[in-house]
Amino acid sequence: MTGQAYLLLAYIIGLSLLWGYAAALLLSLRAARQRPPGAVDGESRRQSARAPSITQERTAP
């Protein structure tokens, strides 16, 4: 490959990663703002359904 190709690839990969993540964050924030208050998003639901906490372990029979 030529230097020009390396240059192009480096910029395409680098900028795609940076702006791809930025776009994903902005879309997530936009979706979170449009969600009615109290609604459960997928991430919260997953997190809440995880293993019991320390307190639960202590209080469990």
Partner: peptide, 24 residues
């Protein structure tokens, strides 16, 4: 959102509240 959800559901108990606060 997590804090709000669990403060609106007191019957869920303190144990679950701790777990929910950890869900970030």
């Amino acid at each position: 959102a997590e804090a709000g959800r669990f403060s609106e559901a007191p019957s869920a108990g303190a144990a679950i509240r701790v777990s929910a606060a950890g869900g970030h």
